[in-house]
């Protein structure tokens, strides 16, 4: 099946700006789903609000376009009532870690079998370029005309500390790597967090003189390195990419099944 067959083509061309990394991430995600041969009916995409959240409208799977930051609670509900479904939650950086920060850490703590994709473009693109908790210091944004002074979250470290059992990072430039990581994340039993660095040429790129989409992708290429690589050893300032955590810990729906079994016995 061509990946275009997984799209609701009547909504195309999509509303993302020219060169938006979110389109590339959608591209990588669809390839992962195609390679895993997941049936359209066995997949639920739940999203919140923002540019990233538009994904749920574009894909021809079960989809929920929910409240800002609250995609994970809605996905938790779906997963608990229909544990056999694959649930994927694409979120933006603000959606995941500012508005939905609390939901994010608690979904990770429960280790419920959901794949959370943090599409990190380091800005609130849809609302006009306000800085986000992943912008980091020294960034120009419409709400930081003299540059930001806020430190950023490290999504990977945060997810590991909160208890996610699969944590990885890739970039929109590394499209093939993103597909491979997403495949593993979807197959993983437990809460999977995949941070994919994206680019927003319209708001982040223009304000920070990073040039067009292609030069922003070059930036991803130059400033990241695979964990365990020589490049990262030589220059620890690079952003590490790859799979950081992949462990088997008790999954929430499976544990819940056991509780149901115990409770049902007591009743009889």
């Amino acid at each position: 099946m061509a990946i275009q067959d997984y799209l609701r083509q009547r909504y195309f061309p999509h509303m993302w700006c020219p060169g938006c990394g979110h389109g590339t991430i959608l591209n990588s995600l669809l390839r992962a789903i195609e390679e895993l041969e997941i049936e359209k009916n066995d997949l639920v995409i739940t999203s919140g609000i923002g540019c990233s959240a538009r994904i749920s409208g574009y894909v021809d799977f079960h989809s929920l376009h929910t409240m800002h930051g609250r995609a994970l609670p809605c996905a938790t509900g779906v997963k608990l009532s229909r544990p056999h479904l694959n649930v994927i939650v694409p979120m933006g950086d603000g959606d995941a870690l500012a508005i939905g920060g609390n939901h994010f850490i608690h979904a990770a703590r429960r280790n419920i079998d959901i794949t959370a994709i943090v599409m990190n473009n380091r800005i609130y693109g849809m609302t006009g370029g306000q800085f986000s908790p992943l912008s980091g210091p020294g960034v120009n944004a419409t709400t930081a005309p003299y540059k930001t002074i806020d430190n950023s979250f490290d999504t990977v470290k945060l997810a590991i500390a909160a208890g996610a059992s699969f944590v990885a990072r890739s970039t929109a430039y590394h499209a093939q790597e993103s597909t491979d990581i997403l495949k593993k994340a979807i197959q993983h039993k437990g809460f999977s967090v995949v941070e994919i660095l994206s680019q927003c040429p319209t708001h982040y790129g223009r304000k920070n003189k990073e040039g067009d989409a292609a030069s922003m992708l070059e930036f991803h290429k130059k400033n990241t390195a695979r964990i365990g690589s020589k490049a990262l050893e030589k220059n620890p300032d690079l952003t590490p990419r790859g799979i950081f955590v992949d462990v088997d810990t008790p999954e929430y729906c499976a544990e819940y099944e056991k509780i149901i079994a115990v409770a049902s016995k007591e009743k009889m």
Partner: peptide
């Protein structure tokens, strides 16, 4: 297929 894999508009095959 680098163009196809990276195309943000899913326009290339």
């Amino acid at each position: 297929k680098m163009c196809e894999l990276r195309c943000p508009d899913l326009a290339i095959t």
